[in-house]
Simulated assay, not measured.
Amino acid sequence: MFKGSYVALVTPMDDQGEIDYTSLEKLVAFHIDNGTHGIVSVGTTGESATLPFDEHIQVVKKTVEFAQGAIPIIAGSGANSTAEAIFLSEQLSGTGVAGFLSVVPYYNKPQQKGMIAHFNAIADATDLPVMLYNVPGRTVADMLPETVAELAKHQNIIGLKDATGDIARLKQTQSLVSSDFLFFSGDDPTSCDFLCEGGQGVISVTANIVPKQMAQLCEAALAGNFEQAKQINDGISSLHTALFIESNPVIPKWALFKMAMINSAQLRLPLVSPELASQNEIEQIMRETGVL
């Protein structure tokens, strides 16, 4: 089904904070041309928390339109309200998306039983595949391997984006689910190890900046060429770290602006432009890695 390098795509905005669809079209073409295997549209890197429903849905629709079927588009449809997550999934089901990425509810701190009820309700509301997303560094609540195993019994829940960075957690969860359940890394610094230990892909922030390298890394690892994958990873490992020196997607948007891939590095409040020291640091690393 899904495999390889999926970019957690930023949502470009103009200097007034409105969605910049010209830049969005340019980004989609950039990823198709550089071998990205798929796009996650309006996930957390796409600033889903600050896009109202109408914008959220429109950005996904335009991303699907711009891709013209060349690569699959997974729509972010998570929310800390189960009803809102179901609403988004229902509204996006007819847009041409290939599936959904649904994050563990944030702030609420649901119990494990609450997570099971939440995700089963979302999966019941759609015929499209749903990928779970566990990112306790942002949501505080941590979806445990046993919870993933219970949710994997639902025919529409097909995989997990794991952003814990814990390879032991990957191995533990793999042992509890069927062999066709998908595991995607959501932690760029450990993504190469994740793939080498049996993951099927990544949903990557770094891929915003170096899509070709992330695609090649995934292809090498999935082909069993682990040394080649590690060599590619070594060449971009400094980017994995630098892109998170401030809250995501502050630095990725700044980097794309410096690459002239988007017209503005504008973010939605409460996120603001990076500090000058951060700008200097990411520019230096982009030059060292050949991006600039």
Rank of each mutant, 00 (worst) to 15 (best):
residue 2 F to I: 08
residue 6 Y to T: 11
residue 9 L to W: 01
residue 15 D to A: 14
residue 16 Q to P: 02
residue 20 D to S: 02
residue 30 F to A: 00
residue 41 S to V: 08
residue 43 G to T: 10
residue 43 G to Y: 07
residue 49 A to I: 13
residue 54 D to A: 14
residue 56 H to R: 09
residue 61 K to A: 14
residue 63 T to W: 09
residue 65 E to S: 13
residue 66 F to W: 08
residue 70 A to R: 14
residue 71 I to N: 12
residue 73 I to Y: 04
residue 74 I to D: 01
residue 74 I to L: 14
residue 75 A to W: 08
residue 76 G to V: 03
residue 85 A to W: 05
residue 89 S to K: 04
residue 90 E to D: 12
residue 91 Q to P: 12
residue 94 G to T: 09
residue 96 G to I: 11
residue 97 V to Y: 09
residue 99 G to T: 09
residue 100 F to Q: 03
residue 102 S to F: 02
residue 106 Y to K: 04
residue 110 P to D: 03
residue 116 I to E: 12
residue 117 A to V: 13
residue 117 A to L: 13
residue 120 N to S: 14
residue 126 T to A: 06
residue 127 D to Y: 00
residue 137 G to F: 01
residue 141 A to W: 01
residue 141 A to C: 11
residue 144 L to C: 05
residue 148 V to P: 07
residue 149 A to W: 07
residue 151 L to N: 05
residue 153 K to Q: 15
residue 156 N to D: 04
residue 156 N to M: 03
residue 158 I to C: 12
residue 159 G to K: 10
residue 161 K to W: 02
residue 161 K to Y: 02
residue 167 I to K: 11
residue 169 R to Y: 13
residue 169 R to K: 15
residue 174 Q to R: 07
residue 175 S to F: 10
residue 178 S to H: 14
residue 178 S to F: 04
residue 180 D to S: 10
residue 183 F to V: 05
residue 185 S to I: 05
residue 192 C to L: 06
residue 193 D to A: 12
residue 193 D to I: 00
residue 201 G to V: 08
residue 208 N to Q: 01
residue 208 N to D: 01
residue 210 V to C: 12
residue 214 M to G: 05
residue 214 M to E: 09
residue 216 Q to T: 13
residue 223 A to I: 04
residue 225 N to G: 00
residue 227 E to S: 13
residue 227 E to P: 03
residue 227 E to T: 14
residue 228 Q to H: 13
residue 229 A to I: 03
residue 230 K to V: 03
residue 233 N to S: 14
residue 245 I to K: 07
residue 247 S to Q: 15
residue 249 P to I: 01
residue 257 F to I: 10
residue 258 K to R: 15
residue 263 N to V: 06
residue 265 A to T: 05
residue 269 L to A: 12
residue 269 L to Q: 11
residue 271 L to C: 05
residue 273 S to W: 09
residue 280 N to L: 14
residue 285 I to C: 08
residue 286 M to C: 11
residue 286 M to D: 06
residue 288 E to H: 06
residue 289 T to S: 10
